[in-house]
Design a binder for these strands. Sequence first.
RNA 1: AAACACUGCCGCGCUGCCGCGCGCCCAUAUCAUAUCGGGCGUGAGGAAAGUCCGGGCUUCAAAGGGCAGGAUAACGGAUAACGUCCGCCGGAGGCGACUCCCGGGAAAGUGCAACAGAGAUAUACCGCCGCGCUCACGCGCGGUAAGGGUGGAAAGGCGAGGUAAGAGCUCACCGGCACGGCAGGCAACUGCCGCGCCCUGUAAACCCUAUCCGAAGCAACGCUCCGCAAUGCCGAGUCACCGGCCCGGUGCAUGGCGCGGAGCGGCAGCGGGUCAAACCCGCGAGCCGUGAGGCAACGAACGGCACAGAUAGAUGGCAGCGUAAGACAGAACCCGGCUUACAGACAGUGUUUCACG
RNA 2: UGCGGAAUUGUGUAAUGGCAGCACGACAGACUCUGACUCUGUUUGUGAGGGUUCAAAUCCUUCUUCCGCAG
Length: 129
Amino acid sequence: MKIYPVCENRAFQRAYKKGKKAAGKYIVVYVIKTSDKDAAKTAHGKPVTRLGLTVTKGRGGAVVRNRIKRVLRAAWCGAAEKCAFSGGLDVIIVARDAAAEAKSSDILPELLSLSEKLGVTEANRNPES
RNA sequence: AAACACUGCCGCGCUGCCGCGCGCCCAUAUCAUAUCGGGCGUGAGGAAAGUCCGGGCUUCAAAGGGCAGGAUAACGGAUAACGUCCGCCGGAGGCGACUCCCGGGAAAGUGCAACAGAGAUAUACCGCCGCGCUCACGCGCGGUAAGGGUGGAAAGGCGAGGUAAGAGCUCACCGGCACGGCAGGCAACUGCCGCGCCCUGUAAACCCUAUCCGAAGCAACGCUCCGCAAUGCCGAGUCACCGGCCCGGUGCAUGGCGCGGAGCGGCAGCGGGUCAAACCCGCGAGCCGUGAGGCAACGAACGGCACAGAUAGAUGGCAGCGUAAGACAGAACCCGGCUUACAGACAGUGUUUCACG
RNA sequence: UGCGGAAUUGUGUAAUGGCAGCACGACAGACUCUGACUCUGUUUGUGAGGGUUCAAAUCCUUCUUCCGCAG
């Protein structure tokens, strides 16, 4: 499973200002439709859903932050196996304090429930992929 | 054996499964690249950290001189260099092994020293002594730094001579400082002798002396392609390069500079293609081993090794074994140090005390 | 990642090396029938450790925290 990253600062700013959000114990999720300028497509021509991570310095040093980002990506991949996301979205995940100690298995159900709340999943549409 | 002192070294290893970055090969789609992909190789530190010093490298024409500014501070050495390291001298601490020291100059000059105290770099409050006046208490003039009290600091300490009372005023001893000589040492310095002086502290106050330093930093900067309207000035100078200043030097038409307005982009910068491509980018004062030489830091010489290179930024999870796997923590142009953080493991040398022989 | 700066009471700010002030706030009292205004008084302090000095908010040094600039 390949992760398409959100790199541009403008995309993050757009998500914070205009996107929909939902908060949980470990994470806060922002979702917005990818702007035309940054849109990318897969080899099959489908629009791609991109993942952006925000882990601020307040969460810890470089080692701790790298670990949080690893865990969040693992949860993202786990979620993508269970249900497909709608195409052409930017999804920004912001780590909260509790995320420093969390496992990916702790975050996975929270990510799923928050996604459902925001209505960005198309559940079990394509379970094989 | 106990308590210490110093130094070095490691800071997870192996197996299996899942997963990540990079390189190569293969497969698949397409022939530019991409991935349900597969295989092999490879992949953070002792501090990678703080950014406190020193270099390399890059750009400023070259990196020239002086002033200003900054840094360092016993001496000798190591080193590319250093504020680092080693040795040594002096001082301080410890029974000792050993440790610690921003350790030049206050006798070139200037400044500062609150409060207290009579007086703070020179002075007479109490006291002591002499003279004059007074019946007397005492008052006035002068001498004095021994005693008192204040203070961080009060003119070196103590004894004798001396005196009206006293005082390095004189002398002996002790202490300190400066100069000269002799001996030892590469030197700092140490010892002895002679002669002179006795002078407060502060230079992490200005300063003086000696030595060193051009500036900026990979977000530096280099480069392929495309685009860029109208207008003014300079054009061998009242120009530009240089950044605080001066001198000197260099460049000048495919050039340099500026005011106002308009458009576009951006947080900002001439702009854009932009997740295009390439380069800086890892062979370097590199690492490992032996090691002439040297008290040591270091290191001639010889042999061997190929050992991260990301770009929202890669190392983790589970199980088993190893007694136990657990700290601080992640390269971002590259090195040498310093400082700070740190669970635990190992090795060596030495000191003191106790016990036994 | 690189470069630069700052830290003084609850808040904002002063202080040639010599007792740390000022304003607002808080608290108490006075004035008033009560409250506000006003007046009087009190409280709370140099980010942390080490050093230089007789004496440090100030000088030196090592940390901590915060802020700014550079895409």
